[in-house]
């Protein structure tokens, strides 16, 4: 293979790995918002707690942060799901019965508090310097084989999450979640314990976001404060879900592919103009602007996202407008 080919392949592998990681988190958000109507804008918080959990459990002892337990990848990933689930349980227990905008405020708040803790509790997290040397599965394979094997691992996890969520969504469980989203009073009159069911969806969705955090930490071999900024997680994942089609898992994956490709290509395009000085500083805003523009264009053309939620009732069952 020529050097150029290797370069392209490696770029493609990087891109797809990121798309798959975002896809996992997007599926978690879709369960929260798309399926159940839970306004979770604290993705960054669940991502962070998952990423740090995995980092602390799987790194070697360094003395710069707690942990260093040198545990295998899957232990860290499962633990990440558990810690983010516990966080979601606390937030949900307090807020889930409130109106959805309160849940939004609470989740943003928790995510920000968590960032402050991660920044200031140096003994646990190494503060702003973050945790490095997180082991990356299959790295020892080297060349293209290592990244390719890692991609396969992430895609495998994505498929498992996708299949389980699709099963749930197209079962009586999903029907009840959609029912609650449509009309809470009617759901309560139908004997459903709305609070418990919402909490369940909130916890499962959030723990999937935590899993995404763990995958990201292993992929970059590093977790630092920048990665927990809402822009890179909360904002992008919401856009992915809305562009792809809220309520439709396949749509969300398509959204992850489109938005992440644009996000990563916009960097190259902007670099190609070799901006300097003042303009270079503004590059991140340009990228956000481009994403915002795409969101607007897509919503103009497809109000419900590119792949709208499918109604099990078939094509007759479409909302009248």
């Amino acid at each position: 293979m020529s050097d150029q080919m290797i370069g392209y392949s490696s770029y493609l592998i990087t891109l797809l790995t990121m798309v798959a990681i975002y896809g996992v988190m997007g599926l978690g958000l879709n369960l929260n918002w798309g399926v159940t109507g839970l306004f979770n804008v604290g993705i960054a918080g669940f991502f962070a707690i998952g990423a740090y959990t995995a980092a602390i459990l799987t790194t070697e002892e360094t003395g710069k942060h707690i942990g260093g337990f040198d545990m295998p990848f899957w232990v860290g990933a499962i633990a990440a799901m558990i810690t983010s689930a516990i966080l979601a349980w606390f937030v949900g227990k307090i807020c889930i019965r409130l109106r959805s905008d309160y849940l939004a405020i609470a989740t943003i708040g928790i995510a920000e508090i968590l960032r402050l803790i991660l920044k200031n509790e140096m003994w646990a997290t190494n503060g702003a310097r973050g945790i490095s040397n997180i082991p990356k599965p299959f790295e020892s394979l080297g060349g293209l084989a290592g990244p390719l094997a890692f991609l396969a691992l992430v895609v495998g996890i994505l498929i498992v999450v996708y299949v389980l969520l699709e099963k749930g969504q197209h079962s009586p469980w999903g029907r009840i979640m959609r029912a609650i989203r449509d009309n809470e009073l009617a759901a309560r009159a139908s004997g459903k314990n709305v609070e418990r069911l919402r909490l369940e969806a909130f916890i499962i969705g959030s723990s999937i976001m935590g899993l995404g955090g763990a995958l990201s930490a292993h992929y970059f071999k590093f977790i630092g404060l920048e990665a927990t900024e809402p822009l890179l997680t909360t904002f992008l994942i919401w856009v992915m879900m809305i562009v792809g089609g809220s309520g439709n898992n396949r749509g969300v994956l398509l959204g992850a592919l489109i938005i992440w490709s644009l996000w990563s290509m916009s960097e190259m395009v902007i670099q190609a103009f070799s901006l300097t000085g003042e303009f270079a500083v503004r590059v991140p805003y340009m990228r956000m602007f481009i994403i915002g523009l795409v969101l607007n264009i897509v919503l103009q053309k497809y109000g419900q996202g590119i792949l709208p939620e499918r109604h099990p009732g078939g094509k007759d069952a479409q909302p009248k407008r």
Binding site: R175, R178, A179, A187, S190, H311, P312, G313
Partner: peptide
């Protein structure tokens, strides 16, 4: 009613 569910689904829920 569960407006986004079909009539049948409304009852099945």
């Amino acid at each position: 009613e569960f407006h986004g569910l079909t009539t049948l689904e409304n009852l099945m829920a």
